[in-house]
Write a protein that binds this DNA or RNA. Structure first.
Length: 863
RNA sequence: GCGAAAGUGGCGGAAUUGGUAGACGCGCAGGACUCAGAAUCCUGUGGGGUAACAGCCGUGGGGGUUCGAUUCCCCCCUUUCGCACCA
C-alpha cells in the first residue's frame, strides 16, 4: 500500500471506473423517489473557470448526497453553445463558429470530467446542435400558432460605420465597441414573445417559490412591476378623438394641469402641425430620436420638454390644459401619455417649475396646509382629497377607486393594470443562433415553415466580416426558398433567436434527451420539476424569468405538467481573490511583483510601491485568476473541491486563498496517512481488548454519532458544507489523537474504526475519489457509490454528563460537569456552593434563579 | 435617490430557536524530529493585565428590551449588490 497520497493516480482510477461502469446514468424508476439536481449549464468559452468549479462542486455534493440517501438522482450537464463570442472568433481568427464551439466543448468536457462530477453524460446536449435547436423552432411555431410569437417594429443599436447591428454589450458608453463611432437607433421589424400574457401568473406564482432566495423573488417582482390604476381619456380640443393616459393616481386628477407625451408618441407631430410650435416640436423630436430610452435615463435629472401648441380637456375639471412633449415619458410603458399633476408627482413638479405651469394641490395631509406656489417638492404621501369637486373630503386611497369607477360609468375611462414587464424581443441579427422558422412570400406574407421541414439548419457558406446586417443574408442557399403555401419564390427570415430561448427549456430536454418526436416526452412527467437549481445570481431576472415563462407556456401546450420549473434555487456567491495594483501600470500578477512581503511589494516597471490586497471578483483583466486546471494538476480535484466547499457557505462570496488550498490538501494527506497507518483496524475484527470502553472512549463514540447528525443536518437542511466539513475535521482530530495512544487504540479499535468509516462516508459527497479509494482500502468490497449514507443512533447520542454553565447576573462565573440524570434542585444547589460563584454572590441578595435545562444556571443578585 | 444584504481575532469564517463568542481552517510563536532545511508531529494563540491566577474589556458606533443580546427593537456609520424618471 502506498503511504503517500497520490491524488492524480487515485482520481484517474475512479474516473475511469465511473465512466466504464456508467455509474451515474439513471432511468426512471417509479419505485424510488426522484431527485433532479441541476447546475446552470456553461457557455463553452474555452476553459472552465473557478466560478464553474464552485457551481459544479456544490451541485455534485447535492447529487452524491441524495444518491446515498436512496434517491433516483438526475444530474445532467450540457452546453449553452450559441452566442456572440463564437461569431467574434470567426471574424477575428477565421475559425468557423461551429468548429470553435465544438473544440471548446471537447476541451471543457475533459476538464469537467477531471473534477469527478457525477453526471449522466448520456444526456449531454449542446444548444447549437440541429437536434436541439429544431425544438426551439418547433416551440416558436407553436407560440406563433397561439399568438405568443408575433412581429412588430422595434429599435436596435446600429453602428453606421460598421453598418451592423450591435448587441447591448457591444455598446460601450453609447459608442461602438470596435470602431468607437456613435451608436444610432434603427427601427426594424422584429419577433417578440408575448411574455406579458403571463405577467399576472409569473407574479402570483412567486408566492409558491418558497425555496427561492427572497432577494431573487424581490428582483423578479420589481421587474414584472405591476401597477394598479386607471386609464382615462382626455378629449382633444379642436381635433377628433382623445388622449388616453394611464395613471396610478386617479385620486389626483383634479390637480392635472397639463399632459405629457413621449417623444415617439404618434400624435406628437399631428397635434403641433399648423401651430406656432410645429418647428419647435420637430426639432425636439429630432434631438431625441436617436437616443435610446436607456441612454436618456442615464443623464437623469434634467427635465426637458416642448409645448405642442395643442390642448386637451381634463374630463373632471372641464378645463383645457396644454399638451407637452417630455423627455422622460416612455412610449413603451402605459399609453405613452401621462396626466401631469405637479403638486403630487416629483417629475411633474420639476417640469412645471421649469416651464411655469400651474401647480394645484388636491391632496391635503393631516398636519399641514399645502399651497401650490410655496411647495418645495411634490407631496406624494396620503391625505384627503380637496378642490376635487364632489370627491373633496374623500380619503385619497379610497378616491383612487371612486374616480376610476366614475370615469367608467361616464364612459371615458376604466380601472386598469399595467406591468413594467415588456414583451420579450427574440430577434437577433446574428449568425450563431437558432434560425427563426419563417418564410416571407410576396403573396402570402409571413409563412411558418411546416413542422416536417424542421430543423431549418444554419448554412455553412457564410462569410464573417463583422459588416452588414445578419450574416445569414449573405447565404444564397439559405435565403432563397419556395413559399410553403403557394410555391412562389420566397425568402427566409434571416434573424436568429436570442440565446435565452435555448436556456429557457433545456432542463426539460434533459429528462428525455433522445426523444425525437417531441422536445420532451412522457419521461418529463417523472423527472420534472427540477428539485434543486444552482447557479449565479446574475441570472436572477432574465434567464429565470424566461424559463418560468416557457414552463407555463409549454404547460399550456401540454408539454409539461408543472407550473414552475425550479422548486428550489441556490444562488452561489462569486469567487474573489486579492489583487495587486500599481498606480501607474495597473493590475499586476502576483508572480511579477518585485520586492517582498516584508519590505513591501513593488511594481516591476516603476519600482513604486504596489497597492495590495483589495479583494475583487476573479477576472483576467484584474490578473487575479487561478486556473482550475493548474490547481487540479498541483493538488487534485478532491483538494480543489474540498477547499471550494470549505472556505465559505455556497451563497456567500468565496475569497480564494492559496494557503487555504494547502490546508485542504494537508487534511486529505493526514486522513490518507491515518488510514494507511492503521491497517490492523480493518483486518482484525476484534472490538478491542474486551474490557468495557472507558469514559473517554464512550465520549469518542458519541462524537462519531454527533458528527453524523451534524453533517447530515448541515447538508440536507441548509447546504452549509463549510460547517459540515469543519465537523468532520474535528472528529478526525479526535480520532487521530486516540489512534496515537496505544492503550486507546487497542481498547477502542471498534470505535476508532466506526469513526474512520463514518468519516469516509461523510466525506464521499465532497471528495469522492479519495473517499472511494480509502473505502476500498479499508477492506470493503462494496463500492462506495452504492453504500448508503450513515445513520446515527439516538441512543449513542445520549450524554452521560452535562456541562452546566453558572452565571451571576449573566456573566459566566463557573462551569460544572454533572451526571445527565441530575435533578434541577441539585444543580441549583451545586451552583450556589461553587466557591467562585459564592464570592460573586457574597453579601448580596439573590433575587432570582434562572435555569435553562441541560445548559446553564443564572443567579441574579442585587446590589 | 430607493430597496436589500452584510460588518465578529492578524485572515477566511463558526455560533441553526435569545443561553459558555471565536468551532474548523489559515497565519503566527515555541518545542520535537533533522547536520541543516523542507515535510511532519506536539503545544499555545481575541485584547489588555498578571510571576501565575483573578477580576477587566471585547461581535462597526450609540441607545433600548431582557436574568442574559453576535442574535430582537430604534438611530447612525461603512461596504457590497440590485433598481434607478415605469406616471
Amino acid at each position: 500500500m502506498d503511504q503517500r497520497y497520490q491524488a492524480k493516480a487515485i482520481e484517474e482510477k475512479w474516473q475511469k471506473l465511473w465512466a466504464d461502469e456508467q455509474s451515474f446514468e439513471v432511468t426512471e424508476d417509479p419505485a424510488k423517489p426522484k431527485y433532479y439536481v441541476l447546475e446552470m449549464f456553461p457557455y463553452p468559452s474555452g476553459r472552465i473557470h473557478m466560478g464553474h468549479v464552485r457551481n459544479y462542486s456544490i451541485g455534485d455534493v447535492v447529487a452524491r448526497y441524495k444518491r446515498m440517501r436512496g434517491y433516483n438522482v438526475l444530474h445532467p450537464m450540457g452546453w449553452d453553445a450559441f452566442g456572440l463570442p463564437a461569431e467574434n472568433a470567426a471574424i477575428e481568427r477565421k475559425v468557423h463558429p461551429e468548429a470553435w464551439t465544438q473544440e471548446n466543448i471537447l476541451y471543457m468536457k475533459t476538464q469537467l470530467k477531471r473534477m469527478g462530477l457525477s453526471y449522466d453524460w448520456r444526456r449531454e446536449l449542446a444548444t447549437c446542435q440541429p437536434e436541439y435547436y429544431r425544438w426551439n423552432q418547433w416551440i416558436f411555431l407553436q407560440f406563433y400558432k397561439k399568438g405568443l410569437a408575433y412581429k412588430k417594429s422595434s429599435f436596435v443599436n446600429w453602428c453606421p460605420s460598421c453598418a451592423t447591428v450591435l448587441a447591448n454589450e457591444q455598446v460601450v458608453d453609447g459608442a461602438c465597441w470596435r470602431c468607437d463611432s456613435a451608436v444610432a437607433q434603427k427601427e426594424l421589424e422584429q419577433w417578440f414573445f408575448r411574455i406579458t400574457d403571463y405577467a399576472e401568473e409569473l407574479l402570483k406564482d412567486l408566492d409558491q417559490l418558497t425555496g427561492w432566495p427572497d432577494k431573487v423573488l424581490t428582483m423578479q417582482r420589481n421587474w414584472i412591476g405591476k401597477s394598479i390604476g386607471a386609464e382615462i381619456e382626455f378629449p382633444l380640443v379642436g381635433h377628433d378623438g382623445a388622449l388616453k393616459i394611464f395613471t396610478t393616481r386617479p385620486d389626483t386628477i383634479y390637480g392635472a394641469t397639463f399632459v405629457s407625451l413621449a417623444v415617439e408618441h404618434p400624435l406628437a407631430l399631428q397635434l403641433s402641425s399648423g401651430t406656432a410650435q410645429a418647428d419647435a416640436v420637430k426639432q425636439f423630436i429630432e434631438r431625441y430620436k436617436n437616443i435610446s430610452t436607456a441612454k436618456r435615463g442615464a443623464d437623469e435629472g434634467e427635465k426637458e420638454g416642448v409645448f405642442t401648441g395643442a390642448y386637451c380637456r381634463n374630463p373632471f375639471t372641464g378645463e383645457d390644459i396644454p399638451i407637452y412633449l417630455a423627455n422622460f415619458v416612455l412610449m413603451e410603458y402605459g399609453t405613452g401619455a401621462v396626466m401631469a399633476v405637479p403638486a403630487h408627482d416629483q417629475r411633474d413638479f420639476e417640469f412645471a417649475k421649469k416651464y411655469s405651469l400651474p401647480i394645484r394641490v388636491v391632496i391635503q395631509p393631516k398636519d399641514q396646509e399645502l399651497h401650490g406656489d410655496t411647495l418645495k417638492e411634490a407631496y406624494v404621501d396620503e391625505g384627503v382629497m380637496r378642490d376635487s369637486g364632489e370627491f373633496s373630503g374623500t380619503a385619497n386611497v379610497a378616491g383612487k377607486e371612486k374616480i376610476a369607477v366614475y370615469a367608467e360609468a361616464k364612459g371615458f375611462g376604466k380601472k386598469a393594470i399595467r406591468f413594467r414587464l415588456r414583451d420579450w424581443g427574440v430577434s437577433r441579427q446574428r449568425y450563431w443562433g437558432t434560425p427563426i422558422p419563417i418564410i416571407y412570400c410576396d403573396k402570402c406574407g409571413a409563412v411558418p415553415v411546416p413542422e416536417n421541414f424542421l430543423p431549418v439548419e444554419l448554412p455553412k457558406d457564410v462569410p464573417f466580416s463583422g459588416k452588414g446586417g445578419s450574416p445569414l443574408q449573405e447565404s444564397a442557399v439559405f435565403l432563397h426558398v419556395d413559399c410553403p403555401k403557394c410555391g412562389a419564390q420566397g425568402r427566409r427570415e434571416t434573424d436568429t433567436m436570442d440565446t435565452f430561448v435555448d436556456s429557457s427549456w433545456y432542463y426539460l430536454r434533459y429528462a428525455s434527451a433522445d426523444a425525437n418526436s417531441a422536445p420532451v416526452d412522457a419521461r418529463g412527467r417523472y423527472w420534472m420539476a427540477v428539485d434543486q437549481y444552482i447557479g449565479g445570481v446574475e441570472h436572477a431576472v432574465l434567464h429565470l424569468l424566461y424559463a418560468r415563462f416557457f414552463t407555463k407556456a409549454l404547460r399550456d401546450i401540454g408539454l409539461t405538467h408543472v407550473d414552475e420549473p425550479f422548486s428550489n434555487l441556490l444562488t452561489q456567491g462569486m469567487v474573489s481573490k486579492e489583487t495587486y495594483k500599481c498606480a501607474e501600470h495597473g493590475w499586476l500578477f502576483p508572480n511579477e511583483l518585485a520586492g517582498g512581503e516584508k519590505d513591501g511589494w513593488q511594481c516591476p516597471q516603476c519600482q513604486r510601491a504596489v497597492d495590495k490586497g483589495r479583494v475583487e471578483k476573479m477576472s483576467k483583466s484584474k490578473k487575479n485568476i487561478i486556473d482550475p486546471e493548474d490547481l487540479i494538476a498541483a493538488y487534485g480535484a478532491d483538494t480543489a473541491r474540498l477547499f471550494t466547499l470549505f472556505a465559505a457557505p455556497p451563497e456567500k462570496d468565496l475569497e480564494w486563498s492559496d494557503q487555504g488550498v494547502e490546508g485542504a490538501f494537508r487534511f486529505l494527506t493526514r486522513l490518507w496517512r491515518l488510514v494507511q497507518q492503521h491497517g490492523e483496524l480493518w483486518t482484525s475484527n476484534g472490538s478491542g481488548d474486551g474490557a468495557a470502553p472507558s469514559a473517554e472512549l464512550r465520549e469518542l463514540r458519541r462524537q462519531v454519532h454527533r458528527t453524523i447528525k451534524k453533517v447530515t443536518d448541515d447538508i440536507d437542511g441548509r447546504f452549509h458544507f463549510n460547517t459540515a466539513i469543519a465537523a468532520i475535521m474535528e472528529l478526525f482530530n479526535a480520532l487521530s489523537l486516540a489512534a496515537q495512544d496505544t492503550t486507546k487504540r487497542s481498547a477502542g479499535a471498534a470505535i476508532i474504526r466506526e469513526g474512520l468509516e463514518s468519516i469516509i462516508l461523510l466525506l464521499a459527497p465532497f471528495v469522492p475519489h479519495v473517499a472511494s479509494e480509502l473505502w476500498e482500502q479499508s477492506g470493503h468490497k462494496e463500492r462506495l457509490d452504492r453504500v448508503p449514507w450513515p445513520s446515527y443512533s439516538e441512543a449513542a447520542l445520549e450524554e452521560e454528563q452535562l456541562l452546566i454553565v453558572v452565571q451571576v447576573n449573566g456573566k459566566v462565573r463557573g462551569k460544572m460537569t454533572v451526571p445527565a440524570d441530575i435533578t434541577q434542585e441539585r444543580i441549583e444547589r451545586m451552583a450556589m456552593e461553587d466557591g467562585r460563584v459564592m464570592s460573586f454572590c457574597d453579601g448580596k441578595k439573590i433575587t432570582r434563579l434562572v435555569y435553562v435545562p441541560r445548559r446553564l444556571v443564572n443567579i441574579v443578585v442585587e446590589g
